[in-house]
Design a protein around this nucleic acid. Structure first.
Lengths: 236, 236
DNA sequence: CGTAGGCTTGATACACATCAAGTCACGTGG
DNA sequence: CCACGTGACTTGATGTGTATCAAGCCTACG
């Protein structure tokens, strides 16, 4: 397996900065399907998920909804370049966020190096995740997409002792995230379950049995047969 | 058409900072298919394309190559999270880059606000492009993917007076970027040409005749028929 | 009991990958 | 000059993964 940056937006010392941060914080609670704020204000804030989950999506004129990213408990995010068609809304009921004005938090960051660090890392992780998403959308079969998705989600969600996690999002959300139809997502999940790669306990509670790295080699060869096996020589 | 951040990494005052920058610069020239530097050093530098083009790709064990991004003349970039499977190499012969040690450039940035600005913008643009790429890979038909790709490229490439641009990359590169087969890319290009959306002058020189915004509405409806038409009410 | 939303399952259609030639431009060497 | 090879591109025939269409199921909740 290839080494790659970890994908957690956690690890931020709340005890230490709690009092300082709460001073600037607004708590926002939203129920399923509710936008977290007015679309044109989105870019003005840093957000921190306390519970539940939100999704950042882009709506097309034909009604299709492309979900760019999910944000899960304890993760930080900011929306730099949201267009008019961008919606950020709650995935499930009981979603609670901390909202901080960018100016406040980024000003604060100058004194508190640890906060600055957290925000910087959140940005970097955003790029890393986007690249993973691109890779996942790119050329894989539906089962592989769903598999990678489940791996990522169970790694990012707060885990329980027994290894089970409960997904906050519906099959429709997964479909819109992976660019598949709901039916295909459903079938893929059934397939993974049948092959004992994941185990379900109810529709949204699951546990990964076999990690990606330990899987047998890809049975099918999609695309070109090995274009350009580049050797490194010497630049300049 | 929806407003969205422009996608140019240009607009950096070279005259003003030329002497200061060249002091830290190493010029790197690479020919087609050559990596721009040792893979493990990639993250140590900021890069600036002077001529030609480079591609950032991720190689899979089965030989497939997923191209995450192209970088075109006059654009700045840095590779924060390149894994062992990541390759950044020249798309065509005659590719020349400026290479700057990150420590040097980012230290310099403290005094030169304009440089800091350029680097910050390059990062933001990177995210914006990644999101566009996700959107493009997401659910579209092959013709649409190719169409969007051509629009983006002709907007980013240095244009000539007659409106023609010459693409630096091959059909294989395009296929690996869009997650399609070469044949499909070729057919899509033929289709666009037949429908008088683009005009070709040789295989790699082309001109966009009709921009995306001015196109007729999507003939086909892929995916779900309008899930969750969310109305904004009021958060919290 | 009924209605609704989320989810699953089956039958069919089609967009795109794959396989297989074939073309075109541009070399290199006889 | 032509023969030949090679790499990039195109075109056609065929197969298949997944979208689409259409029920039907399951759970929650009035």
């Amino acid at each position: 397996m290839v080494t790659r940056a970890a994908t957690h937006d956690r690890g931020f010392d709340h005890c230490k900065f709690h009092s300082r941060l709460t001073k600037w914080r607004t708590v926002v609670a939203v129920s399923k399907g509710q936008p977290i704020c007015e679309p044109d204000r989105l870019a003005d804030y840093w957000w921190h998920i306390k519970s539940g989950a939100v999704r950042q999506a882009r709506l097309q004129s034909n009604g299709l909804r492309c979900i760019h990213e999910f944000f899960l408990p304890n993760e930080w995010f900011v929306c730099d370049n949201a267009g008019e068609d961008t919606v950020v809304d709650a995935v499930c009921d009981g979603t609670v966020l901390g909202r901080y004005k960018r100016a406040d938090l980024e000003g604060l960051a100058e004194e508190g190096a640890s906060i600055a660090q957290t925000l910087r890392e959140a940005r970097l992780r955003r790029i890393a995740r986007a690249e993973e998403h691109i890779f996942n959308l790119w050329h894989q079969r539906s089962v592989d997409k769903v598999r990678v998705f489940l791996d990522q989600m169970s790694a990012r969600m707060p885990a329980r002792a027994d290894g089970f996690v409960s997904l906050p999002m519906s099959r429709y959300d997964i479909a819109d995230y992976l660019g598949l139809s709901v039916e295909t997502v459903s079938r893929a999940l059934g397939d993974l379950q049948a092959r004992r790669i994941v185990e379900f306990d109810g529709v949204r509670r699951l546990r990964i049995l076999r990690m990606l790295a330990t899987l047998p080699p890809p049975p099918r060869q999609i695309g070109a047969k090995g274009r350009q096996g580049v050797q490194f020589l010497s630049a300049a």
